[in-house]
Design a protein around this nucleic acid. Structure first.
Length: 111
DNA sequence: AAGATGACGCCCG
DNA sequence: CCGGGCGCCATCT
C-alpha cells in the first residue's frame, strides 16, 4: 500500500480508491488515509479524493494544494486536473479480493 | 461484543 | 453545484 503511494511520481497525483486498487484492495480507499497517517515519509499530498478533489479538511487542505502546485500540479477550481495529472499505476494483476490487511480473511459479502 | 469513527466512493434529488 | 444517505473495512473505546 505505502509502496503504491510512494510510486506516485512528483508532479502527479492519484486517488484513494486508485491507490487502494493498485495495491490490491479495491474496497479499502478509507484505509489509504490511515496508512498516510501512520506512515511518515509518504507523499500524502499526492493522494486525493475521487475526481481529484482534496478530501482533507482545515489547513491541511491548503497545505496540500500549495505543495501540489509547487510540484507543478494545476488545479481546476477546487480540483486537480485529473485528466492530466492522475498517475496510472502499472497493471497489477494481484487481485486481492480479500480484506485490506488480512489476505486470508475473505469475507463473503452478502451472499 | 457492540457502537462509533474516519484524509472514501457512489447514487439520488 | 450542494446536500443527504448508504455501503465498505479496520481500529478504538
Amino acid at each position: 500500500m505505502a509502496a503504491a503511494i510512494r510510486a506516485i511520481p512528483r508532479g502527479k497525483v492519484s486517488t484513494y480508491g486508485a491507490v487502494a486498487a493498485a495495491a490490491g484492495y479495491p474496497r479499502c480507499a478509507r484505509h489509504v488515509s490511515k496508512v498516510l497517517n501512520v506512515t511518515p515519509g509518504l507523499p500524502w499530498q499526492r493522494v486525493l479524493g475521487s475526481g481529484g478533489r482534496i478530501s482533507l479538511t482545515g489547513e491541511y487542505a491548503l497545505e496540500q494544494r500549495f505543495l501540489l502546485e509547487a510540484e507543478g500540479v494545476r488545479f481546476k477550481g477546487r480540483r486537480v486536473d485529473m485528466l492530466v495529472f492522475e498517475h496510472r499505476f502499472p497493471a497489477s494483476r494481484k487481485a486481492a479480493r480479500s480484506a485490506c490487511g488480512h489476505p486470508k480473511v475473505v469475507r463473503g459479502r452478502g451472499r
